[in-house]
Design a protein around this nucleic acid. Structure first.
Lengths: 233, 233
DNA sequence: CGAACTGTTGAGAGGCTTCAAGCCTAGTGG
DNA sequence: CCACTAGGCTTGAAGCCTCTCAACAGTTCG
């Protein structure tokens, strides 16, 4: 599945920007760089699949990767998106379980594969690395718990508004206030946990209420305070 | 809020059973024991509240603690229950955030408070401790992600059946197949993410279908395979 | 240029929630 | 000892939010 067409540029494989690796000493960082394997992945490529055995984790140095679980009738539930500076597949790896999610490229991406033994080496040799790692997992756990509460208690309308705001926080807007991540209606539905048709209807309601503007998959924010009110946060 | 009426027994404050501390050397374990503070808490006591600052994490050595978030209109969303051998409050502590959940005793409990500096000391001095800690957080994150998928895709009926089976896994049954944890209908609803009335109606349907038997808050399992089928796992 | 996928809209059905009323149980105070 | 109260439990009825199904338009791509 892992098809690399062209090589990523030197710059696209730099791990120095990762907060996680900030406290490594020169030796550790060299070792990391020596043992990493970076590849460029086209949109649509599956990085790893639910149930597969992982040999390491990945650092996203470019692009966007969608992490999802497959639920009832193959319906996707999107857990999160990973972008530059974030790591994926570390959870199942640390638990030494088979992958419980699938990772798919939605924006041409460069990923660096870090073998499991390198991860273990870093945990053993540098407590600050472990500490950072702990903070990353804890942060993700917090988001997951927050989301459980939302999804259990809020209406689809509130959740969609919240998801839009969340996307706004995590992915930049251009100078026109347009969201710089392109998702299908179905993907939005799979984030919110609803039917595609519901997302479509609600989006056009938001549009009628002058909170957003739509052009295909482009979403432009017009009235964020009101959107926040709808989201009920 | 933290009212200790009677002292816990020596045996009730032992941390030697905790998997998390298995790899500590004698010095580390002594330090841990020296710096812990154990108390006994009555049913209904709040250990820590959403938004409060935490000074350490807690090891549950006896009893059951309910961890929940407060959502819309004060409606509780139960995140999990912690029982003997489990730790609580570590997530917000590690992230150095204010508590994002509330912990309340639902079965008379003994908790040992471990100060933040002790946690940091252990992370610095013993990589195996950090590794265990990472595995605990990862395991909780996995459960959270699974639950997001369920709650987003399954019906209330399926989720209730699943919650019952989950409780069966985590809390023992007596020799009559009766669940050894006593929850109100409202608490069940707050786990499933539904209205109390819905839980009541579904429980009596399950009873009519001879899958469970009810006596007040006691739930007795009669047909687990069928319950599993309803849960759709 | 058709095939496959995505997006849109309408109609109907049904699962759940909400509101309301009443019952039961346990704990309290006269 | 018993009425009383509060909180939990139960049931019914009404209604709405959301899903599903279905048909069709638009878009992309080989």
């Amino acid at each position: 599945m892992r098809i690399a067409i062209k090589r990523p540029t030197e710059e696209e494989t730099q791990l120095s920007g990762f907060h996680l690796f900030k406290k490594l000493n020169d030796d550790e960082f060299s070792k990391l760089n020596f043992e990493k394997t970076c590849s460029l992945y086209k949109k649509g490529t599956v990085i790893y699949r639910e149930g597969s055995r992982l040999t390491g984790f990945f650092c996203v140095t470019k692009g966007i990767v969608k992490i999802f679980k497959t639920g009832i009738d193959g319906k996707e539930q999107i857990i999160r998106f990973a972008k530059k500076g974030e790591i994926i597949a570390y959870r199942s790896l640390l638990s030494q379980e088979l992958a419980c999610t699938t990772a798919k490229v939605i924006d041409e991406a460069v990923l660096c594969h870090i073998p499991y033994h390198t991860l273990l080496f870093l945990i053993e040799s540098n407590w600050q690395f472990s500490h950072h790692m702990l903070q990353i997992v804890c942060s993700e756990l917090r988001q997951a718990n927050d989301y459980i509460t939302d999804i259990a208690q809020k209406t689809v309308r509130e959740r969609l508004a919240e998801v839009l705001l969340l996307l706004k926080e995590n992915f930049d807007l251009d100078n026109q206030n347009t969201l710089q991540i392109s998702l299908t209606r179905e993907e939005l539905a799979n984030m919110v946990g609803t039917a595609t048709e519901s997302v479509i209807r609600l989006l056009s309601e938001f549009k009628q209420d002058k909170m957003i503007e739509l052009q295909g998959r482009k979403i432009k924010f017009l009235d964020i305070p009101n959107l926040r009110r709808v989201a009920n946060i």
